[in-house]
Simulated scan of single mutants.
Amino acid sequence: MTEPTLVYDDDCGFCTWWAEFFGDRTEIRLVGFSDLPDHPDLQERLPEFYEECSHLVTEDTVYSCGQSLEEALRRYDEGGPVGNGLEFLRNFEDYEHVREWGYRQVANNRDKWGKVMSKTPPARRDTEES
């Protein structure tokens, strides 16, 4: 596998919105949880309870949960204010804890966030829409 791949919940409109945001603006390939059986090499690199959060899989590393979106944002804006801000924040000992806490707060309220940002998830699209 050479291209970074974001593995996400493709039955969640909010998750789909974010995944497609990165898919449209970066070189990150998207693979939904429902498509993982077609990618056994990718699935075996994921943690046992992979459905608990998103993952950005690169050739060398698997970034999970908040770290996966942080890395996707860094790749989206490498050298820009967001990318530079993330590099700065990584210097602080508590940043990882805050990042993961924030990820959990959003992930646990996806239904509410989905009212603001959402796309029809691939797992729910009609074949005519695809």
Rank of each mutant, 00 (worst) to 15 (best):
T2W: 14
P4A: 08
Y8N: 09
Y8D: 11
G13C: 04
W18T: 05
F22Y: 05
D24Y: 14
R25G: 13
I28D: 01
I28G: 09
L30A: 10
L30H: 09
S34K: 12
D35I: 00
L36K: 14
P37N: 02
D38Q: 14
Q43S: 11
E44I: 11
L46R: 01
E48V: 05
E48K: 10
Y50T: 03
E51M: 05
C53R: 11
C53Q: 08
S54V: 15
L56H: 05
V57A: 08
V57Q: 02
T58F: 15
E59K: 14
D60E: 13
T61K: 07
V62C: 10
V62W: 01
Y63K: 08
L69E: 00
E70Y: 02
L73W: 08
R74V: 01
D77C: 01
G83C: 00
G83E: 01
G85E: 12
E87I: 03
L89S: 03
N91I: 06
N91Y: 04
F92S: 02
F92H: 03
E93D: 14
D94E: 15
E96Q: 09
H97V: 12
Y103Q: 13
R104V: 12
Q105A: 09
A107L: 00
N108S: 02
K112V: 13
K112I: 13
G114I: 09
K115G: 14
K115W: 03
V116K: 09
M117Y: 12
K119R: 05
P122N: 10
E129N: 11
